[in-house]
Design a binder for these strands. Structure first.
Ligand SMILES: [Mn+2]
Ligand SMILES: [Mn+2]
Ligand SMILES: [Zn+2]
Ligand SMILES: [Zn+2]
Lengths: 137, 137
DNA sequence: TACTTTCTTTAGAATCATTATAAACTATAA
DNA sequence: TTATAGTTTATAATGATTCTAAAGAAAGTA
């Protein structure tokens, strides 16, 4: 109950109405100390199978995109057929385990400063991300 | 004619029969001093519009995937709806220009050695790639 | 509270990239 | 040649994502 008040405020201050669908998705995504990575399909399964709720897929897409736009989620840059979202919105990097298809965070301070000796005239850098692919030894 | 002999050999030594479709695709992809990035759709358009040839889309997909498997192409790890391939198969990094949706190579020696202070037990690193997103200033 | 407006959800259709199917075709080797 | 395995192709199927338009819900106002 009191958890939800935070989410209600979070949504209200973002200009998003606190509907029960959005609050449920907030609970799944943000009501945990640990951040995690997920696909839309993962999220949909958690809601329907673990929580026995039904939220239409269109709403899940709408909500995830709305949250991304507000900066509450990041979409992860990497290709592997799947599109991943991340509840960790701080600047960080990733390991991608090809054996399990899972992403693992690599925090910015675990990477020594990246120096790039090439500039593109008229362009400014908006992000620098490392993707480390790993597999079983 | 003599260019094609190289491609015929390249294909034969890879265990791929040198069909006219594959040779045509080789010409488009490898008959140039510069490497480049492309999508399957780009390649398909070059073949049909610029060369006025018809190769079925299924064959283009098959060929691109076969070439990737043989190491003649790399598929680029990044998300932007589009899936890019790269005729530059050396180890290198990329800029992605969000304004133009184009990839630009960033050679390995233009990046100072990347040091990662995190290891995953039982896993070995298969690649480390940087993606630098840029936009207009 | 009643009314109005705007936003949100939803089922279902549409789209788009990619992959699968299976029959016709072709390169290669016997 | 003939046989074999590999290849191409049109077409259908798949799967993720987006669109549509109608019904429902939240917020604002009187
Ligand atoms: Mn998206
Ligand atoms: Mn692919
Ligand atoms: Zn992450
Ligand atoms: Zn490249």
């Amino acid at each position: 109950m009191n958890i939800n008040i935070d989410f209600v405020n979070k949504l209200r201050t973002s200009g998003l109405r606190p509907t029960k669908q959005r609050l449920k998705i907030c609970e799944v995504l943000f009501n945990t100390e640990k951040t995690f990575h997920f696909t839309v399909n993962d999220l949909s399964k958690i809601i329907s199978e673990k929580l026995n709720q039904k939220i239409s897929l269109a709403t899940i897409y709408n909500t995830v995109h709305a949250f991304k736009k507000k900066g509450y989620l990041k979409e992860i840059s990497m290709n592997s057929d799947k599109t991943y979202f991340d509840t960790n919105t701080t600047h960080h990097h990733h390991f991608f385990d090809s054996s399990t298809m899972k992403l693992i965070d690599l925090s910015d301070d675990q990477v020594e400063k990246i120096k790039i000796n090439k500039a593109l005239p008229g362009k400014k850098i908006s992000s620098v991300e490392i993707l480390v692919k790993v597999e079983n030894e």
